[in-house]
């Protein structure tokens, strides 16, 4: 289809011959290439960072899930420990294993220490009566 406009201007001047050295032309090409590379680089960085953000967020969510799971397990173990430490359970174990244990006489125990696997004792802990916790009736003079 002819889409030539009706009035062709005859006065149009022929293009002037290109001026400039080869160096300038190369500079133009390099400049263009540099801009393209910069844009591509930026775009690439953007995509890369976005990908990293997504991966990190996924890792965070996964770690959070793991953390929640661990916390729940810790909570369950803590309750289990409390059940095992309760007096009825201890009494049942004493009866089950026929342990003829008796409570210490007053003044018989002054300090408590736990032996570690390497047979060293943990720092000395005051006996329960000497604890100065608020209001447990345990702060007494000896």
């Amino acid at each position: 289809m002819n889409i030539q406009p009706g009035k062709l201007k005859n006065s149009r001047k022929p293009r002037a011959a290109r001026q400039g050295s080869i160096g300038e032309k190369l500079f133009t090409v390099f400049r263009f290439a540099f801009i393209i590379a910069a844009v591509a680089g930026l775009l690439n960085s953007y995509i890369y960072l976005n990908q990293k953000i997504t991966e990190t967020e996924r890792a965070i969510r996964s770690t959070e899930r793991e953390l929640t799971r661990t916390e729940r397990e810790i909570a369950q173990l803590r309750i289990h420990r409390e059940r095992l430490c309760s007096r009825p359970h201890i009494n049942a174990m004493i009866a089950r294993f026929h342990l003829n244990l008796v409570e210490p006489a007053v003044g018989q125990v002054s300090h408590l220490a736990l032996l570690m696997p390497d047979r060293t004792a943990t720092p000395l802990q005051p006996a329960v009566a000497l604890r100065t916790t608020a209001g447990n009736g345990g702060t007494r003079r000896n």
């Binding site: 409570e103 210490p104 006489a105 007053v106 003044g107 329960v128 009566a129 000497l130 007494r140």
Partner: peptide
């Protein structure tokens, strides 16, 4: 005994 309260008269305190 738990509170480690010393007796008033230790000599009268029987062996637990």
């Amino acid at each position: 005994r738990h509170l480690n309260i010393p007796p008033d008269h230790p000599e009268k305190s029987t062996k637990h």
